[in-house]
Amino acid sequence: MADIAREHGMTVIVKTVTRLTLAFILLYGIYIALNGHISPGGGFVGGVIVALSFVHVMLAFGKEAALKRLHSKGLRLAVNIGALMFLYIVMMRFAWKFPAGRFIIEKMRPHEIFANEIILPLCELAIVGAGLFTVFIALVLLCKYEEKIEKEK
């Protein structure tokens, strides 16, 4: 009985409320991340809140339903691309020394896209949010593995 309840998530009330509030939690996390330069917050805290929204989905709907929607490959991609964008921004400072880099800067003007207030917090958010959720998935899957071992015994 407890297994069935755990597999299919929580009650109907929790599921409905989760569906309604999920967008707001994500929006709140992104708001905190983007407003990091004038109010407390920044990418770190925003990432934690975004990860919490994913964790909320997993708690309310059960493990299988949540894992079907949010692939682990996408998470790894988010973490790594977020970190590599940081590196790219560092490299941009040195790009004007090389002719190829100068060409890119003049023609495509990436430094106007990578404004400091928008992209950087989003990178931090990607890293922290995806990273935290990956660890949560790992812990959850560990529990699942342990249950399987107990059932086999």
Partner: peptide, 16 residues
Amino acid sequence: AVAIVLNLSVTLLLVA
């Protein structure tokens, strides 16, 4: 804000 996230990672590793 930074220290909370760092301590969170340490706690997660310890729990794992």
